[in-house]
Simulated scan of single mutants.
Amino acid sequence: MTIEQLYTEALELLQDLISIPSLSREEDKTAAAIYTFLESHSVKPERKMNNVWAFNQHHNPELPTILLNSHHDTVKPNAGYTLDPFTPTIKDGKLYGLGSNDAGGCLVSLIATFLYFYPKQNLKYNFILAATAEEEISGTNGLESILPILGEINFAIVGEPTQMHLAIAEKGLLVLDCVAHGKAGHAAREEGINAIYEALADIEWFRNYKFEKVSETLGPIKMSVTVMQAGSQHNVVPDTCKFTVDVRVTDAYTLEEVLDTIKHHVKAKVTPRSVRLQPSGIPISHPIVQAGLAFGRNTYGSPTTSDQALLRVPSIKLGPGDSARSHTANEYIELQELEQGIQLYIKMLEKEVL
């Protein structure tokens, strides 16, 4: 298939996907549409829950493997929509619709790229395409659930809207539930130990502490206290104060290292909701990064979290569209971004990238 044919079919698939509501955990119909699309191109896809994947036709287990991954779930439509979020609308060179930019454009571009390489013989590496679910909620029934089935992966491209620039590092995420303890008493008398005051010292530490190592691409670790709950009535000194901390971890530390440091410094009981969403990074010397630079792309560190956080192999975040449009009203992707995305994916992967 020519690039023009691939673009035409990718655009049609994207329009179909926009027209099918696919909120996180409700992606069954878009999974079916992707499965049917691949079958119609003589690909033999597989499916688990709402995840669809396929291997290139001449898959050789002795070769290294590249994963092409993006997601087909969406957030709920923004209240500011003036267009129907589920009606794909082309106007002034733009395709409007929920999920067009995040991450439908990336997904169909990667599918087109996979179809380009799918029938080729004598490839230097295998390709796996994975269209996955629950990315928007960091769910456990998305990419994470099929990674053991996919086998060994040597490198991955995660499709997210980056204007086709290369995110070579991505922050990980720790969400911490903290509980400061005191002793209940009557507020009118000098009784009890106020758990809110006990929490304040810890909150001040979170506000001011600076981790020693600073990432070259992602900068410093950022910690933000975002939720606080304490007390039941005005005249009772609270014996517990609960607060939540959002920690964006760079590739200078693992989540476990950051958690150990926090527990060492604060009095509150600290419980992480998970340590799944690890920071990631890839050396600028890696061949895929060099391939992107050769085509005039820039590199940067991404502050947002994606399915890249679930991978434990070298990876980049790369795709058509603009992250600034994600989750906004009247979301769109430019048609030329879609076509250029397919072209650049293919050009980069035709180089020696492993």
Rank of each mutant, 00 (worst) to 15 (best):
T2A: 12
E9N: 13
L13D: 04
L13K: 11
L14N: 06
L17K: 14
R25V: 10
E26T: 06
E26N: 13
K29L: 14
T30F: 04
P45I: 03
E46K: 15
R47L: 09
F55P: 01
S70R: 11
H72R: 07
H72P: 03
G80V: 00
T82I: 07
F86Q: 01
D92N: 15
G93V: 01
G93L: 03
G97A: 11
D102Q: 07
C106W: 05
A112Y: 03
Q121H: 10
Q121G: 08
K124M: 13
I128H: 01
I128N: 02
E134D: 09
L143K: 10
I146S: 01
G151M: 06
E152H: 14
N154D: 14
V158L: 10
E160M: 01
L166F: 03
L173N: 11
H186R: 14
A188W: 08
G192L: 09
V214T: 13
S215W: 01
V225G: 08
G231A: 02
Q233H: 14
V237W: 09
K242H: 15
D246Q: 11
T250E: 03
D251T: 01
A268Y: 01
F295M: 10
R297M: 10
P303K: 12
T304F: 15
K317V: 15
L318V: 00
L318F: 15
G321A: 06
T328S: 14
Y345Q: 02
I346D: 01
